[in-house]
């Protein structure tokens, strides 16, 4: 029975996860005298609160998230951007740093361009983006490779305090920007190093449930290097 502590069990929609003494948190609801899960995920209980951390599904936009999106359309008020969520996101003209003439919009961000952008407002059926940042980390992507992953695996790709990402960056000599929506931008001097980083990221995503993931990733990187 000691195993149970380690292996967190997966729950399914409708499954009873707690009694009514608990308060229903994210992706749970009260049903009669019980609290049930409304998503496929893992249960997390604190003192009085019970919530479910989803394991799958499309990206749900949240305030403050840095995401990578593709410009789909240009209007006089701003840019329509696909950030992979259930809603179209919008980047208003005023949220673009510097002054942009309407006639110049296309040259600033054109259709098909990818942006590292930030969510600054989430409405009922809308998402607003900004490109304004103090450290200039929000920008148009000019070169590199995009790796698309299940957004729920993003924390594992980043690792504790960014440890996993640092590991990949150092091993492949690339720059990596992780969008919370599951789009990851890798850029390096050579496309080969980008593809190596892509392989490592894909390996992590496939093995997120494995124990000792960091060691496994280190071994995977070593094997990749040996193959060369």
């Amino acid at each position: 029975m000691t195993e149970k502590k380690e292996k967190r069990e997966i729950v399914i929609p409708g499954e009873i996860i707690a009694s009514e003494e608990f308060l229903p948190g994210d992706w749970t609801m009260k049903q009669g005298k019980n609290i049930i899960s409304t998503r496929l995920g893992i249960v997390e209980k604190s003192d009085k609160l019970v919530k479910v951390i989803p394991l799958s599904g499309v990206y749900i936009p949240r305030y403050g998230n840095v995401v990578i999106g593709e410009v789909k359309d240009i209007t006089t008020a701003g840019w329509v951007v696909d950030v992979k969520g259930p809603y179209q996101a919008f980047l208003p003209l005023r949220e673009c740093p510097g002054f942009v003439e309407v006639s110049e919009m296309e040259n600033v961000y054109g259709i098909g361009d990818l942006l590292v952008t930030k969510i600054f407002n989430v409405g009922r059926t809308s998402v607003d983006l900004t490109m304004k940042s103090r450290d200039r980390s929000l920008n148009k992507i000019r070169e590199g490779t995009i790796v698309t992953v299940n957004p729920h695996r993003v924390p594992r790709v980043i690792g504790k305090e960014g440890s996993m990402i640092t590991l990949i960056k150092n091993a492949t000599k690339t720059n990596i920007t992780v969008g919370q929506n599951g789009l990851i931008w890798v850029s390096g001097e050579k496309v080969e190093s980008e593809l190596a980083a892509k392989k490592i990221i894909e390996f992590i995503v496939e093995n997120t449930t494995a124990d000792g993931l960091t060691e496994k990733v280190e071994k995977f990187i070593k094997d990749l290097e040996d193959k060369k």
């Binding site: 399914i12 929609p13 409708g14 992706w27 609801m29 049903q31 049930i36 409304t38 998503r39 496929l40 989803p54 394991l55 799958s56 599904g57 499309v58 729920h152």
Partner: peptide, 11 residues
């Protein structure tokens, strides 16, 4: 649907 992470009250 459950696999797609769609919120559902029951199966």
């Amino acid at each position: 649907l459950a696999h797609a992470g769609v919120p559902m009250k029951e199966m």
